[in-house]
Nucleic acid binder design. Sequence first.
DNA 1: ATCCGCCGTCGAAGCGCTTCGACAACCGGC
DNA 2: GCCGGTTGTCGAAGCGCTTCGACGGCGGAT
Lengths: 367, 367
Amino acid sequence: MSGRGRVASGQPTIADVARHAGVAVSTVSYVLSGKRAISELTRNRVLASIRLLGYHPNAGARALASRRANVIALVLPLRSGIQVPVVMQFATAVVTSARRHDHDVLLLTSDEGPEGLRRIAAGALVDGVLVMDVELHDARVPLLRELGRPSVLIGLPADTGGLTCVDLDFHRAGQVCVEHLAGLGHRRIALLGAPSAVYDRETGFAHRTRAGVVEAADRHGVEAVTEPCEENAADVHARVVELFTRHPELSGLVVQNEAAVGPVQAALVGLGRRVPYDVSVVAVCPDQFAEHASPRLTSVPVPAEEIGRQAVSLLMRKLHEEPVPEVTLLEPRLTVRDSTATATAEPVPAGDGTAAARFCDGTAAAR
Amino acid sequence: MSGRGRVASGQPTIADVARHAGVAVSTVSYVLSGKRAISELTRNRVLASIRLLGYHPNAGARALASRRANVIALVLPLRSGIQVPVVMQFATAVVTSARRHDHDVLLLTSDEGPEGLRRIAAGALVDGVLVMDVELHDARVPLLRELGRPSVLIGLPADTGGLTCVDLDFHRAGQVCVEHLAGLGHRRIALLGAPSAVYDRETGFAHRTRAGVVEAADRHGVEAVTEPCEENAADVHARVVELFTRHPELSGLVVQNEAAVGPVQAALVGLGRRVPYDVSVVAVCPDQFAEHASPRLTSVPVPAEEIGRQAVSLLMRKLHEEPVPEVTLLEPRLTVRDSTATATAEPVPAGDGTAAARFCDGTAAAR
DNA sequence: ATCCGCCGTCGAAGCGCTTCGACAACCGGC
DNA sequence: GCCGGTTGTCGAAGCGCTTCGACGGCGGAT
């Protein structure tokens, strides 16, 4: 009856392989899993049969018997206000890394909410969960704690107790930006941040960056104002104009909003402020954006790929019941490009040989 | 032995529910699936037990027994040259629609290639496949044909025989853009297209749009030049400058490249050409982009959400073995905003009227 | 030689669910 | 009041795989 798996499903079963190779079903299984020693000879015979028959293990049966689905869930924020390209980079990195660990990725959207998580996890559709876009007081966090399945958060909630979180150290990133500007002699700077919805939602990264900026500014005797900013050209323009109207002496700008990068530059041009001669701009954005802007932007990239890889790797370790750190923060690195320069005390003559000239006076005290 | 499912897995099994409700396992199953009549009384008792125990059916067991995983695969292009936000919109729409049909979505990347598809499908991890970013001569197409699992392509390969495809009618979209410009009296237009890599890869939509543009231009006696364009500000700028240098009399621009939208406008400003007074711009891009640009762009949106929904719905119908059309093309609609205007015959008073002046000689014969 | 232990393999017992056939109990029609 | 047809429920047979215990055979230690 169970003699001819091919008939029912069109796919050969492990029994077909076993019969073809003249071994027991369990032997085939052990060849595949490597959990028991199998002689070279037998292994080769089995592998040959597998290839010949085009056998692929049935995922459902495997999951049922082994209690591991070899699938992880990835919960993505598919809503506005979140940087789409960064999310895509995450997703790519996660899928790629997961495959390296022989796992597939089930895609969930945030808006399915906790119920979706529960369904997936309780039904054993997935072995573990990766959650992006975590808010400071995220409704899913308590659920994750009680879920009984390993999970890794990308982002930091207010209380990380009993969780595993990875993220860029945005607090440090904010500091780094300010330190860079301060080092160039800028004394009045502004943070043009995420859309206000992101702050309202208490998404950690926006708050942490802002805190880092404010703190470093304090520490370096720099005056800093912070301003949220929507993701459309018109609002960016309005914010920039407003900023420079209220604070005409601003000479440094930290921009944490990919969508704003282009429009900010346009707006500055409109105001007759040149980058970097009149205003230095540091962006927190994907490298790709920074490279493609003109002038190329000094930036602190969000290492989406690295974070994705780390997250998967942490999750895998949890699946193997290895201990992992509660919080993993990646050190930001600032790449200097063409959008930042020494703060000038004097108006700039003309041409652009001047940039170099200015470096001299402003940067004398550089340590 | 199988008496206490809770012990082994921590999750109650259908047997626990049955015992608790005082019915047979099969009865519980029928309550859940509705495939046989169950008395009101029994049903309620069972449902109460389910809720009380917090029962969730085990996905693996269900898939094994029913031969349906209730999961579909979504193959996304996670590489460059493809419009990221559009892809995200697709993904969101697909996940959301799939959930409405009680299915989950497994995320695959294109770069796993055909082997990934085979693994997923043969292993019965998924019931069907959705493939995005189909190329004219896509290596995965033959595989899909032989796979024995329902699939839907988002995009059109050269030969659609035996397949199911959904897409925006890009050919028509190209025509619509040209018709709009022609109707406004423009006689020299250009298509600023996708990155050349996209054309080389023979991704259908780019070619189809170009063909539509060329054809409609011919038909309307409009001169059209087409030009690929990379996704960075510098290249966009260069292309625009080059276009207007070689064809100074250009007065209409069709842009099919989200990333180019902002830079194009900047470049035109740089050339002293105002939108829409000197140059009319029509974009093929997400509505969101068109809305947020300034001036707001007349555009043909890519209805990613609609296409995603359609794709899922088609796939579901195939899963139920219902017949579906081979090709579903969505009619493009053009939204007129502020970036297109009538071609001028007279020089525009203020500003640098030179641009407008040039229109006179070239466009006298407009019908 | 003899025994122990290891290696390589096998058979069988599930994993938790769906589904098929069986079968009481009950209905109305003649 | 007997029969055919529902209606509601049950039991059991798998679905295809993993894993555990068993076991024959072989080599090295005794």
